[in-house]
C-alpha cells in the first residue's frame, strides 16, 4: 500500500506561495476545524471549568453513543439514503438488553447479544424494505422509528425496566487503558470506518452506489446487497449504542435515544456529506460530532436554560454549515 505523505503533498500544493497565501488557503480548506476551535476557545474563555481534562472526558463520554450511530448514518447517507430509526432502535435494544438481564442475572453476557441482535434485526428490516421492496429510505426508516418506539414501550408494558443487577453497569463503566468502553469503541469505530471507506473495496463501492447507482450496478457492484448492508450496519451500531446508554444508567427506558437520529444526521451533514449520496467523509463526521457535543457541553456549563440552548445550537449549526459551504466554494475556485 502506498502511504500518502501529507507533508510532501502540502509542499507541492503550496510551492512558490507566500506564507500569508498559504495560511489563507489552509484556513479556507479547513473551515470547519477553525469553527470548532473558535467555539472551543470561546467556551474556554467564558468558563474555567470548560477546558479541563475532566470536562474533555465528560464530552467524550457524552459523544460516544452518538458517535456509533453517526458512523452508521455516514454509511447510509453516502449511499444517498437516510436512517431515521436509530433513536428508536436504541430504545428497543436497551429495553431488550434490560429485559434479558433482569431474567438472567447470572448470564449477563446475554444482554449485549440481545441488544446487538435486536439492532441487527431492525437494521435488516430497514435494509430489506429499501433494497428489495424499493421503499424510499425516508419512509422505510420512519416506519421503523414509529414501530420501534412502540415496541420499546411494549417490552416493559409501558414502564422502564429497573432493578438490574449491578454488573449490568460494567459494559459502559469498565475502564480499559484508563478510558471507558464506550469511548474506546468510539475511537476504534472512527479508525475502522475511516479505513473501510478509504482503503477497502466495500468503502469504494459505498461511494459508487451513492454517486451513481445505475453505473455501479452495470459495473458489477451488487447494489441491492450494498444498500441492505449499510442499514444493517447502522442498526447494529444503534444496538451497541443502546446497550451503552442503558448500561450507563443501569436501567432500560423506552425514552432512551429519543431524537438521537437528528443529532447523528446533523453530525454527518455538518461534516460536509451530501444528502444525495456519494460525498462525505469520516473525518467530516468526526468534526460534526465534536461541534455538536462541544456546543451541548459548553452551553450546559454556561448554565443557559435548555430551551435557549436549543435555539443557540440550531443557529450555530446553520451558521457553521453556511461558512463551510462558502469556504469550500472559495477553495474550489
Amino acid at each position: 500500500m502506498r502511504i500518502a505523505n501529507p507533508v510532501a503533498d502540502l509542499r507541492d500544493r503550496y510551492r512558490g506561495k507566500s506564507f500569508g497565501e498559504v495560511a489563507v488557503q489552509l484556513a479556507v480548506r479547513n473551515a470547519m476545524v477553525l469553527i470548532l476551535l473558535v467555539v472551543i476557545a470561546y467556551f474556554a474563555y467564558r468558563s474555567a471549568r470548560f477546558a479541563t481534562p475532566e470536562n474533555l472526558l465528560v464530552i467524550l463520554i457524552a459523544a460516544a453513543p452518538f458517535a456509533l450511530i453517526a458512523l452508521g448514518q455516514t454509511l447510509v447517507i453516502l449511499t444517498g439514503g437516510i436512517d431515521l430509526s436509530v433513536g428508536s432502535i436504541i430504545a428497543v435494544s436497551s429495553m431488550s438488553a434490560a429485559w434479558v438481564a433482569v431474567r438472567n442475572p447470572d448470564q449477563l453476557w446475554l444482554a449485549p447479544v440481545a441488544a446487538i441482535a435486536v439492532g441487527l434485526i431492525c437494521g435488516a428490516i430497514n435494509g430489506l424494505l429499501v433494497s428489495v421492496a424499493n421503499v424510499p429510505p425516508f419512509v422505510a426508516t420512519l416506519a421503523m422509528l414509529t414501530a420501534g418506539s412502540g415496541l420499546a414501550y411494549a417490552i416493559g408494558n409501558g414502564a422502564p425496566i429497573n432493578g438490574l443487577p449491578s454488573g449490568y453497569g460494567a459494559f459502559a463503566n469498565t475502564e480499559v487503558f484508563g478510558i471507558t468502553i464506550p469511548v474506546l469503541l468510539m475511537i476504534v469505530g472512527f479508525i475502522v470506518f475511516w479505513f473501510v471507506l478509504q482503503h477497502t473495496t466495500y468503502g469504494l463501492r459505498v461511494y459508487a452506489v451513492g454517486g451513481n447507482s445505475s453505473a455501479a450496478s452495470l459495473a458489477g457492484v451488487p447494489t441491492r446487497r450494498m444498500l441492505a448492508s449499510v442499514y444493517i450496519i447502522s442498526g447494529a451500531l444503534a444496538g451497541v449504542s443502546g446497550l451503552m446508554i442503558s448500561s450507563r444508567v443501569i436501567s432500560g427506558a423506552p425514552t432512551l435515544g429519543q431524537g438521537y437520529e437528528l443529532d447523528a444526521i446533523a453530525a454527518v451533514v455538518i461534516g460536509g456529506a451530501s444528502l444525495f449520496g456519494g460525498r462525505g467523509t469520516v473525518w467530516g463526521t468526526l468534526l460534526g460530532l465534536l461541534l455538536i457535543q462541544t456546543l451541548n457541553n459548553g452551553l450546559q456549563i454556561l448554565v443557559i436554560p435548555a430551551y435557549w440552548q436549543a435555539v443557540i445550537k440550531g443557529a450555530l449549526i446553520a451558521a457553521a454549515v453556511g461558512i463551510d459551504v462558502w469556504a469550500s466554494r472559495r477553495a474550489s475556485r
Binding site: L204, Y207, A208, G211, N212, S214, A215, A216, G278, R279
Partner: peptide, 18 residues
Amino acid sequence: KRDGLVLGRSILDNMTLP
C-alpha cells in the same frame, strides 16, 4: 453519464470499479 460513470469520483475509481 447516467449508466457509465460515477462522475463525482476519480478516473482511478471509475477505471477500476468493475
